[in-house]
Design a protein around this nucleic acid. Structure first.
Lengths: 232, 232
DNA sequence: GTCTATACATAGATAGAC
DNA sequence: GTCTATCTATGTATAGAC
């Protein structure tokens, strides 16, 4: 598997890539026409939005704040999106595309339930670390999304969980994992993965690295899924 | 240990109790003078605030919304708090008092690391379930608090985690638990406890009860802390 | 104690100059 | 393409009648 540094580089590329996609798909909504300029400014706008929102909330961030943070006038901002709500939708959209694409690319290259489970955990942690502001934002601002986008977010969340549950079931069929409830187990694995990006400040202060965190989560999962559960 | 139903009753009493405390301590800020009336209306205001905020965010909840939700005019609302920010502070305050008081009452009655750990997990889950709206609110709106209150919230959070870590260390000293990192272990236990109130809708839809959830978390923790960790 | 009516600030959004 | 200036709606908060 690739190192975390390589991984970060890949994520960075993918993000620019998808900024372009967003642009081509929203040509009608975005008034500026030079692709390079749009991608550059969209990236700045997204970045500033995440920074400001994660500090005080998307709703509390005024477009004047954003204007200052992104280095563009309010008038200019409206050349890139039609409303504050649409800005939210675009960010949500971009993030989810990057994550699903990279998750799919990285997983599936390995075989065997134990290896699969470990890889899924590590890749998810790497990804959520490389895109921490987006993951945090996405979690905290979900309730501000319009109904339709909210449903999409939930579906995407459940799909990830299902992925873990499927790996666990496969391992149980092969008699590698013990008879734990696959849905509950994957729910709890997800809870642990989420803590990494929701409480990043805490782990950073304690100097816990992604790799160290990954190791603990993997150990924990294997201890629980071990074929001979320990009696109470 | 008491049943969940008894527990809920106790929490309900404690909440009214603490509403009174809040009132006596803020006599100067609250303009209404009849205790019964204040407690009744404060409870309605708090409840409506939690309901509205948890749906669309505290900042997005206007005082007009709250006025409608609580069944009081906007003028009347301002007889109970001086500003929206202070309302936030009062809610935060009340919740934390209830939780710390009940946690302390319930824990410490048992001896032995295994029993202590189990009790701490179960009580925390019961509490966060009985006061789910407050726990959710407290987590999601932390960043909207004034600096001082934010520090208090973090301290309280870390104290809970410390409590778990201490139990684990005790168990390790008595050679009952294996050599896992106590801080990381308690951080992950907390992550699992949080998932219960942050994703309540999910577990409700799957018909997972608090007791069932508690059992899984306890099993998981014991599997991980078992004296002979399973080799990878 | 609670209400209605209103003051004042700030939010999102747009028009038109450059 | 981007800016400044401005419109309108909505938000918090208060005054004063009842």
């Amino acid at each position: 598997m690739m190192t975390y540094e390589e991984f970060k580089g890949m994520v960075h590329l993918s993000r620019r890539e998808i900024c372009k996609e967003i642009f081509t798909e929203n040509r009608d909504l975005i008034k500026v026409k030079k692709p390079d300029r749009v991608v550059k400014n969209l990236a700045r706008i997204f970045e500033a939005t995440l920074a400001l929102s994660n500090k005080k909330g998307f709703h509390a961030m005024s477009l004047r704040d954003l204007s200052a943070g992104a280095g563009l006038s309010m008038g200019a901002l409206y050349s890139y999106f039609a409303s504050k709500e649409e800005l939210l939708r675009m960010i949500q959209d971009q993030g989810r595309r990057v994550t699903t694409r990279i998750l799919q690319e990285q997983i599936g290259t390995v075989a065997g339930p134990r290896e699969k489970l470990q890889t899924a955990i590590v890749v998810h942690l790497y990804l959520s670390d490389a895109m921490q502001p987006w993951f945090y934002f996405s979690y905290m601002e979900a309730k501000n999304l319009p109904k339709k986008a909210q449903r999409e977010a939930i579906l995407s969340e459940l799909a990830t969980e299902q992925m873990f549950a499927d790996i666990i079931r496969e391992g149980q069929n092969q008699n590698i994992f013990g008879p734990r409830d696959p849905d509950m187990t994957s729910a709890l694995i997800k809870a642990m993965l989420q803590d990494w990006y929701l409480k990043k400040w805490k782990y950073q202060a304690r100097q816990v690295t992604v790799d160290a965190y990954a190791r603990v989560v993997v150990d924990w999962a294997f201890a629980y899924l071990n074929r001979e559960p320990v009696a109470e």
